[in-house]
Design a binder for these strands. Structure first.
Length: 282
DNA sequence: CGTTTTTGACCGGCGC
DNA sequence: GCGCCGGTCAAAAACG
């Protein structure tokens, strides 16, 4: 049986003929170096996140502008073709601000209303077939203020306001898809003027999902943000990335904690001292 | 007991 | 003007 030395991945050379205090200094230096490296990585990561958000905002603005010009053309076309416009389903596949033509009759009947809400977008969420819930977990807290059965869809439509209302103006409507009852169609209106309330896993999942929700406004059931239930299960996001994220967060918080680094240093130096004293007893 | 959800009533816009 | 329809209000009920 071989010796079971703990692999700390810190390149510990216990057989080095130097003294314990010298080793302590090396270890402390190493820890400081790793600490600095972690800080630098954290800063780089946060910078990347900021850049990403800025780019996403620019993309949204560009999409809004693009859609506005499109809707002007569309409205002209609709005026001209109002008599025979019943075959326009799915001609445009951009759903940002709801100005697109979808398979929903209401959008064709009253296109101007949807056009006037530049910050509205839709998200399709896959749920369990048996689930009748109209709750979509997206990292924010919502307060339901109404429910209606609409004409074009037999399943009820739920109306939600952000829990931070009236300071936060965001609203959302959630209704089962007419085509596929296992899909919830969540229509968001407005932008949150605050961060996510829910920490922990909901925050993590929403951060991961923002890359889909924030910029891509899904219209086709093929592009579904899949989730099997209101529980925090994310199907199309690789689990390894979530694990990686969790590990990274844990590592960062641990290495940034001076108590942890001090405890680690003392534990390692204690081990080294034990080892050297055992050798001395030999 | 405070907060959230439910649900019927009400309101305003739109088409006829 | 009237009726339809989507969206909102608000009182009651439910919940923790």
């Amino acid at each position: 049986m071989e010796s079971t030395c703990v692999d700390t991945s810190l390149n510990l050379n216990i057989n080095h003929p130097s003294t314990a205090t010298y080793k302590d200094e090396i270890m402390v230096e190493e820890l400081h170096r790793l600490n600095c490296e972690n800080k630098w990585l954290s800063e780089t990561l946060s910078n990347m996140c900021e850049n990403y958000e800025a780019m996403q905002k620019q993309l949204n603005q560009l999409m809004n502008q693009n859609c506005e010009t499109q809707t002007h053309e569309e409205s002209r076309k609709r005026k001209a073709e109002s008599e025979n416009c019943n075959n326009m389903f799915g001609t445009i596949n951009v759903i940002n601000n709801e100005c697109s033509t979808t398979d929903e009759e209401s959008l064709i009947k009253r296109p101007c209303r949807e056009i006037s809400s530049p910050k509205a977008y839709k998200v399709l969420v896959k749920t369990e077939a048996s689930s009748n819930s109209l709750y979509v977990m997206d990292g924010y807290q919502w307060r339901k203020y109404g429910q209606k059965v609409t004409r074009d869809n037999p399943s009820p439509r739920a109306y939600f306001r952000c829990s931070n209302a009236p300071s936060c103006p965001v609203k959302k409507k959630v209704q089962k898809s007419l085509e596929d009852p296992t899909i919830l169609v969540a229509t968001y209106e407005g932008e949150h003027n605050h961060g996510h309330e829910k920490a922990e896993i909901s925050m993590i999942s929403s951060q991961i999902e923002e890359s889909f929700i924030g910029s891509v406004h899904v219209t086709s059931p093929k592009q579904i943000i899949q989730r099997t239930s209101p529980s925090m299960k994310i199907d199309n996001v690789p689990k390894s990335s979530i694990q990686q994220f969790l590990v990274q967060q844990m590592a960062t918080s641990l290495t940034n904690d001076p108590n942890f680094t001090a405890a680690l240093a003392s534990a390692i130096s204690g081990r080294i001292l034990d080892h050297t004293s055992n050798k001395a007893n030999w």
